[in-house]
Design a protein around this nucleic acid. Sequence first.
RNA 1: UGGGGAGUCGCCAAGCGGUAAGGCACCGGACUUUGGAUCCGGCAUACGCAGGUUCGAAUCCUGCCUCCCCAGCCA
Length: 641
Amino acid sequence: MQEPVKSAELAAAHTKEASAKRPAEATAIDGRPGEGNGSPGSGSRENGPDGLEGKPSNFIWEIIEEDIKQGVFHRQIHTRFPPEPNGYLHIGHAKAICVDFGTAARFGGVCNLRFDDTNPTKEDTEYVESIMEDVRWLGFDWEDRLYYASDYFEQLYEYAVQLIKMGKAYVCDLSPDEVREYRGTLTEPGRESPYRNRSVEENLDLFRRMRAGEFPDGSRTLRAKIDMAAGNINLRDPVLYRIQHATHHRTGDKWCIYPTYDFAHPLSDAIEGITHSLCTLEFEDHRPLYNWLLETLQIPEPPKQIEFARLELTRTVTSKRKLRRLVEEGYVRGWDDPRLPTLKGMRRRGYPPEAIRDFCERLGVTKTKGVVAIEYLEHVVREDLNRRALRRMAVLRPLKVVLTNYPEGQVEWVEVENNPEDPQAGTRRVPFSRELYIERDDFLENPPPKFYRLAPGREVRLKGAYIVRCNEVVKDPATGEVVELRCTYDPATRSGGAAAAGESGEAGEAGGRRVKATIHWVSAGHAIPAEVRLYDYLFLTDDPDEGGDFIANLNPNSLEVLTSCLVEPSLADARVGDRFQFLRHGYFCVDPDSEVAGSTGTETAPRTGEQGEARLPRLVFNRTVSLRDTWAKVQAKVRSD
RNA sequence: UGGGGAGUCGCCAAGCGGUAAGGCACCGGACUUUGGAUCCGGCAUACGCAGGUUCGAAUCCUGCCUCCCCAGCCA
């Protein structure tokens, strides 16, 4: 999936801007170690508010700083992001990626991408492709450091042999059930396996034959010989190797024994020269085992495991099981459904990767488990898009307006700014004519207090054009539904012109009226049809598990598809992935479905490109996030009064 | 009744013995040709609880309470 040129440029500008604003975090934001940054660590710190004695911004950096001061490692700071290729990446992984890559960058080190592929029955290359794409999309670069735990199988095997020779590991014939029985419980110690004291020779022979495929799945394991009475269950002779006659997605049928995570992880870290192995809290209990292996095998300057709290969001599920259920049972349209917290979903929805990174960085890194309000993510996304997104006018629920005093057939191209936040974004011309469409919500026949948009006899400004007055309301005689507004415009009020009423400094002229509202519009004869998909939270409760069943908390209205939208003609050249702010609505992103003509029945008139470049057969927009809506609050308050 | 963690505003989070940063949310107000953005102001006598040490503690000590994780040949 390619980032459109337009977005890429904006992204670059954004990064620059962000860096300028927060020099101390520049390298973390950039996330690209060793790129145009001689000494990211010290360099950025000197510019920070705290100077050289500045305080680390999280406990992990504090530890690393101390390690550097103590000279613990005689190599550069080296981290890794170690996903198992058995699923798609989601927002939770985004934080881990930011922490792993960001930490390395902070200290001028590097971060590896390593697939933890030690369980052939659950993994697939489809996932490795997808994961690489997502990490890249997020903006991180592992350069030439792409690794697989499966690349180390031979070395890991040798380490296992070494343990056996040291009398620190043994082949155990207990069945899975027996192993569990012997393990004891949380409060009772385990019992030693009857196979625990086999001779080194016998263990070596058995382990070799395990590898040779002489035994069936589950019949034997290689176990570390530690302490069956340990309070930490991970130390009760943990399994290091299991027999699985399964085809591995990378090593094929070369192996029928596979190392467990507990064995493979610390040693893979060691092999890669990792200095700091950052992972989530649930691995705290594994650290003693992690260290035991490194110590026992006498790994010099062993990597240090540090755990931090994973990211949890309200109204969101990230467990593989739950995500799979949502997808497989059709509650959403696929792994990239914009309502999902998968990176694919977020990308399709229009969340900029820069915003996701910014979000993760602003949350900080701690050991405190928490659930972040999804509103915070939305805030960060709005903040980002407000700076960069080009403004466009789109009428989602059209209501026809005829300007009775505007000459038939006349068209004026009014100039409107592309982004008031960014003068550099320039302006564009939008056609204005006698027949227009405005938002249905912008007219109310019986306006409540504080509603200051259009109503019979009232005036509003049409963005970038004139002030209009509503004189007549045309209704469908059968249903009573308002089908058209007949208005008049005031030629003296055109935007930008010296005569733009009352707003050129000379207070109170042009009839002394000061419109209280400016609304968006499109010209009936020029507008382009479009489909707009409005997303709401997937769940009705902050905690999807409230009440026990997350399916029961699904929001039945999480997707609203509007197929009669009209957008301004400049959007004709939009490309998939482009992001815009639709004035007064929110931020929207062109959906890939735009490339498939009429797949959901939205008939878009065939359009031909003017600059040789093929236009999309139709336009489908996803609402990334709405604008803050103060009016909604006012309404709510009025209602409750 | 085992082991490992965590408890600072509704949410995230600074603080590392010197008298509670910041962001989100919320509430006011200014400004505004997006009821957007922006700007200004308000928002923890209080840091899980109880003692103790100290001139002084969210920060040190003691005890207690609450919550989370661990009994896959998953990661």
